[in-house]
Every structure is written in C-alpha cells, then in structure tokens.
C-alpha cells in the first residue's frame, strides 16, 4: 500500500472528523417524538400527536409504481403547524425535513387540503416509533419522509 494513499485517507478522515464535530455540536436536536416548527427564524417544539387525531386512508405509489394502501390514524400537517401558533395565511410553502436532512416541499394549498398531507406514526426496524410524513396523490414516494424532525415554514 502506497504511503501517499494512506496520507490522503488520513488527511480526509481528519478533515471529515473536524467538520462532523462542528456540525453535530452545533446542531439543534429535537426531543424524541416531537417536531420543531421553524417560522420567522423562531423554532417551537411540539408533540404532533397532541393535535386532533384523524383517520388517514389512501394509497401511495413508490418509484417502481407499486401501490401501498395506508389505513391508520394520524394528524393533518395543518393541525401540527397551527399548534405552533402559525396561521395558514402566514406561509406559502413548508419544507418537511427528516433527521438525515432529506426534505419534501409542500405548498400551502396542499397543506390546507384535508386529504393530502398527514403525519403518522411509523415503526422503525429497531421497534421504536418515528414520525412520518404521508402525502397522497403523488406519482412517486419522494415526499414520503421518514423520521420527520423539522417543519420549516416560508
């Protein structure tokens, strides 16, 4: 193994570790089971499942065209946003962000529609529960966001 190749790996590892430390130490952690709602540079943590529970029934389609029936209880995205004291006329779009920074954008019209955007409880592989965004009416699963941590309103 060439010494210069090892040097490259070590240098990259050190830089990555430094950036990871800066990022992880400066990150705003949301308590488990809660969602942070960011609006006007202010952040409010809410328990989404304290909002009025509704029946969530619909079909989602994944990238392969495979349909999945969803029949569970959850909360509308609008009711969760309203828990933070934000009125539906205050924002035009919302960015729903997961713990790994994957995000999905929804317009206010989609959020106001009572049959499109919901937050539901989703079981993880390690038997824990996380918050999942379910969006109905899409032709793929790009906006089915697992481990929702943050809702940024714009």
């Amino acid at each position: 193994m060439k010494k210069r190749n090892i040097t490259i790996i070590v240098v990259l590892l050190i830089i990555t570790a430094i950036i990871a430390a800066i990022y992880l130490l400066g990150r705003n952690y949301v308590p488990k089971g809660k969602v942070s709602i960011v609006f006007n540079e202010k952040s409010v943590s809410v328990d989404p499942f304290k909002a009025a529970s509704v029946n969530v029934n619909g079909t989602t389609v994944n990238g392969k065209g495979k349909e999945k029936e969803i029949s569970t209880t959850g909360v509308t995205l609008l009711s969760v946003i309203q828990m933070a004291g934000v009125s539906d006329s205050d924002f035009s779009k919302a960015l729903v962000v997961s713990s790994d920074e994957y995000s999905a954008e929804l317009t206010s019209a989609e959020i106001l529609d009572p049959d499109i955007a919901f937050l539901i409880k989703s079981a993880n592989d390690d038997d824990t529960e996380s918050i999942k965004l379910s969006v109905f009416g899409d032709s793929d699963s790009k906006r089915q966001v697992k481990n929702v941590e943050r809702i940024e309103l714009k």
Binding site: N5, T16, A20, G26, Y102
Partner: peptide, 24 residues
C-alpha cells in the same frame, strides 16, 4: 437533497473519505 452550508460540506467530505477507502 439541496443541502447547503456545513451539512453539504460534511456530505462531500464523507463521500470523499469513503471514496478514498474504497480506492485502497
């Protein structure tokens, strides 16, 4: 993903580091 700032930087460096390890 449309990441920006330090998250994007970390994402790039994690990719670069794993690329260098895979190169070995």
């Amino acid at each position: 993903f449309r990441l920006t700032g330090i998250i994007l930087l970390l994402y790039v460096f994690v990719s670069a580091t794993s690329g260098s390890i895979c190169a070995i």
